[in-house]
Deep mutational scan, measured.
Amino acid sequence: MSRESDVEAQQSHGSSACSQPHGSVTQSQGSSSQSQGISSSSTSTMPNSSQSSHSSSGTLSSLETVSTQELYSIPEDQEPEDQEPEEPTPAPWARLWALQDGFANLECVNDNYWFGRDKSCEYCFDEPLLKRTDKYRTYSKKHFRIFREVGPKNSYIAYIEDHSGNGTFVNTELVGKGKRRPLNNNSEIALSLSRNKVFVFFDLTVDDQSVYPKALRDEYIMSKTLGSGACGEVKLAFERKTCKKVAIKIISKRKFAIGSAREADPALNVETEIEILKKLNHPCIIKIKNFFDAEDYYIVLELMEGGELFDKVVGNKRLKEATCKLYFYQMLLAVQYLHENGIIHRDLKPENVLLSSQEEDCLIKITDFGHSKILGETSLMRTLCGTPTYLAPEVLVSVGTAGYNRAVDCWSLGVILFICLSGYPPFSEHRTQVSLKDQITSGKYNFIPEVWAEVSEKALDLVKKLLVVDPKARFTTEEALRHPWLQDEDMKRKFQDLLSEENESTALPQVL
């Protein structure tokens, strides 16, 4: 008996699950189920560990084997000379395990699969056993689809999209007709009724959600790893209520002995410091949205989908001078704002400069500016000194954290500008005749005249004003913003236009 009217009423009120309206889709043409990776026989039982391990490696599972009696060998002398080797079968990115008779397991190899009674669906509900069930008529011709799209860092995100009359449910929550939600590992998919569980979705590319604290899981769906560094790992996640993407940084307390840091400095109150950081608001710094204190720290951040500045300059790639100017102007505005709010970044580098898009002209935002507030000064500097390429001379020669101030950030900005303009770092371990530390503390950077011949004198002058060993003589952010190279009204107008595109209400910060 159909429950279409009941569920449609529920759909009209929406769902609290991570779902959002989605535009129309072009329906895929039908194809045989076997060619799409559906096993030839149905099963109602969950797999054992041996079955799972075989399939996850990209080899055929026991459900897909063919009797050897149906095959015969071709003698080598009868092999056609022009026969080309077969292409290897792509490894599946996800697996659906059937929970009921009449449904088959599915190895997801393609990027898009339609499910329903219509014969054009890649996964067609046409098993005779299924057709005899009382629920068969409640399934729509095109009930739902599972697909994946390219996300940040060229990774993939799996989604389920509801197109049914009676509802598609993920972990008992209604997706909603015309809406989608991301699928995470071990999600249970039910059709027409929330208790009519048909599939379990296994994402073969992500970790299980159960490793994360419950308070975090209640608000966010964790997904793929976006990156990792000395101070922690960053994962893509989704807000459950809105389906908006965020980035979540995970900082290990054990790695940084944060408990010991608190004992050594009783004034170090991470929760208080995070609340201060959350109040920071500038178009060129990453917004801190939320914070969870569990076995590790979880910092929920605004997501930038254009990648890191590092990706644009790695491998001796240089940027156009006009692009360097647009990016560097924004970096200076961001660091100036942090300094005005009493925050020294201490870890400025291309990896911590994020881009809003893949376009050459785009907004940038500074991230990882609050680590000293979370990890403690000593722990952070011990970590950073392991990779000193961007560290100021006074940091390398000081004991502990004494003896330096916000000028350290201006040195790091000078190193970043040098790399963007030239395509190579000013200080490098590859210069074996002088140690990296000695290069930095003496201010002897690697200047290649033929490379810098293409760079304007004004740009080079600003680099020199920032890479000054004496912090008292080094340019401040205010002085850098007043430098002739940055007195470019076309560049500032472009920045204002980019801000307006992102948010019509965002105004250009005042600069002296």
Results as ranks from 00 to 15, higher is better:
E263R: 06
K177P: 06
E81S: 08
D101N: 12
S62D: 15
Y220A: 08
V109P: 02
A261F: 06
L129K: 04
P128V: 11
N105H: 12
E76K: 14
D6P: 12
Y220Q: 00
T133N: 06
P213H: 07
C121G: 08
S210A: 09
S32I: 05
E161D: 15
D77F: 11
Q10E: 09
S16D: 05
P80N: 15
D126T: 11
G227N: 13
R148C: 14
E149V: 14
A98D: 01
V198L: 02
N112V: 08
V175W: 01
Q78R: 11
W93R: 03
E70Q: 04
L106P: 05
W93G: 02
F115A: 07
G227Y: 00
T138G: 05
G259C: 11
K131N: 10
G259I: 02
I160A: 13
S15L: 07
T59D: 06
N105W: 05
M222I: 07
I160F: 00
E263C: 14
T26Y: 15
D6Y: 04
R180D: 00
F201N: 00
T138V: 04
L174T: 01
T205I: 10
R180F: 15
F256Y: 13
V175K: 00
N186R: 01
V234D: 00
T133A: 09
L226H: 03
V109A: 07
F199D: 00
N166K: 07
T133P: 05
E76V: 10
I248Q: 11
I146L: 04
S155Y: 15
L191G: 06
N48Y: 09
W97E: 02
S35A: 10
V66I: 14
L236A: 00
K197A: 10
K179I: 06
A264P: 15
L193A: 00
G176H: 05
S228C: 05
Y123L: 15
V150K: 00
S53F: 08
H13P: 14
F144N: 02
E107Y: 15
S252I: 07
V170Y: 11
R148Y: 08
I160D: 01
D6K: 08
W114M: 11
S28P: 09
Q20V: 13
R254W: 08
S50L: 06
E149G: 05
A98K: 10
V206T: 02
E161W: 07
F202D: 03
L216P: 00
Q29P: 06
L174N: 07
N171E: 12
T26L: 11
G229L: 02
Y159P: 00
S32E: 11
T168R: 02
S35G: 09
F201D: 06
T168L: 10
G232M: 02
L191V: 13
K214E: 07
P75C: 13
N171P: 00
S41N: 10
S28T: 09
K135E: 09
V7K: 08
D203L: 00
N171K: 12
S252H: 04
A247W: 02
M222D: 00
Y139Q: 02
M46V: 03
T225S: 09
D6N: 08
E188N: 08
D265I: 14
I221D: 04
W93Q: 03
E219A: 09
K249F: 02
S19L: 07
D77S: 07
T45V: 09
N154L: 03
P88L: 07
L174C: 03
E79Y: 13
H143K: 02
G37W: 09
D207W: 00
L193M: 02
K241H: 01
R117N: 00
W97L: 06
Q51M: 07
I251N: 11
S39E: 07
H54W: 08
A261Y: 15
E64M: 00
K255M: 07
E122C: 10
G227V: 01
N196R: 00
G30V: 07
A257K: 00
L96R: 01
N48L: 09
Q83R: 11
V25H: 11
E239R: 06
F238R: 01
C121T: 14
R3N: 03
A215T: 11
V211D: 08
K135L: 15
S33C: 15
D126N: 15
S155R: 05
V211E: 03
V198F: 09
V246G: 07
A264I: 03
T133R: 04
E219D: 10
P88M: 12
D101K: 10
D118M: 04
P92R: 15
Y220F: 01
A91Q: 15
S120C: 10
A9K: 14
L268N: 06
E86V: 12
E107G: 14
Q29D: 10
R117G: 00
Y139T: 00
S57I: 04
K131E: 08
S55T: 12
H54M: 10
W114V: 10
S57Q: 04
G116L: 01
K119H: 11
K253W: 02
S31G: 12
E79V: 11
K119G: 08
S210M: 04
F147Y: 02
S73C: 10
V175A: 02
P128N: 05
M46E: 15
S2R: 13
R180T: 03
S55W: 07
S24L: 12
S57L: 10
R145P: 04
S5A: 15
S67Y: 01
Q27I: 10
D82K: 03
R117E: 01
C121K: 01
R262G: 04
S56N: 11
R254L: 01
V200G: 14
